[in-house]
């Protein structure tokens, strides 16, 4: 299992710098926003947390369609499936390595983008915390979509359409926890804890469903 994690991480960093492209996409989305809403710093700092969350959400969907597809195309998936390891555990590990290689670098770059949005240090810290807690849920839900679209040649767009409605709760609680941290009357703890709960819940449900779907996908 450890070997799978290490191999996937190694692949992610070796092939075309996947993490770099993700961060770049994140940066482009964040940069595009002021052109649409205008360079008013007060407005930007107000909508900053929301923009960062949407950008991170879109960026973490990138590459998810390849989560199992590459392994299926080169025959690796067949060999992995027939070994004695549980498929749920395999999917969990693959999600984990995908998040470590693509999600985490993205989150670590967030403070810089927060400065572009003229956000306060507290707001940046809140976005950072909610993203760290919330984005794994996106990966775990995305794994289900990735397993469903594994045999489709252009599953990427379909995956986004399938997954985006399902991650709305994550976005809701992520953004409201962030605003809870910076605006006084709104609570921070309860949406943050719900966000944690969502991630824990989907870290179980996602791998189980995706593993089951992968086992059915081998014809």
């Amino acid at each position: 299992m450890m070997s799978l994690l290490l191999r996937d991480m190694r692949l992610a960093f070796r092939v075309g710098g996947g993490a770099l492209t993700g961060i770049l996409f994140f940066l482009v989305v964040v940069t595009i926003v002021p052109f649409a809403v205008g360079p008013d710093l007060n407005l930007l700092s107000k909508i900053g947390p929301a923009i960062l969350w949407i950008a991170a959400l879109l960026a973490s969907l990138l590459g998810l369609d390849r989560l199992f597809q590459q392994d299926r195309e080169d025959g690796t998936l067949d060999v992995i499936i027939i070994q004695s390891h549980s498929l749920t555990a395999i999917v969990f590990i693959k999600c984990l390595s995908h998040w470590l290689a693509n999600g985490l670098p993205l989150i670590l770059a967030t403070p810089i983008f927060g400065l572009f949005m003229n956000m306060e240090p507290l707001a940046i810290a809140a976005v950072l915390a909610t993203l760290i807690v919330g984005t794994p849920a996106i990966t775990f839900i995305g794994a289900v979509g990735a397993a469903a679209t594994v045999s489709l040649p252009r599953g990427g767009l379909l995956l986004a359409v399938l997954i985006l409605p399902l991650v709305i709760p994550v976005l809701i609680f992520g953004v409201s926890a962030t605003y809870g941290a910076i605006q006084d009357p709104a609570p921070f703890t309860s949406p943050f804890l719900i966000l944690c709960a969502l991630t824990l819940f989907f870290s179980v449900l996602g791998p189980i469903t995706a593993g089951w779907m992968l086992a059915q996908s081998t014809d």
């Binding site: 290490l6 191999r7 190694r10 080169d74 690796t76 067949d78 060999v79 992995i80």
Partner: peptide, 22 residues
């Protein structure tokens, strides 16, 4: 199977090491 289940970006040794451990 028909496919070789090799990762082209990894070296031969990394590929075989992975399968041996897995």
């Amino acid at each position: 199977g028909h496919q070789n289940a090799l990762k082209l970006a990894l070296s031969v040794e990394e590929n075989l090491n992975f399968w041996q451990e897995f």
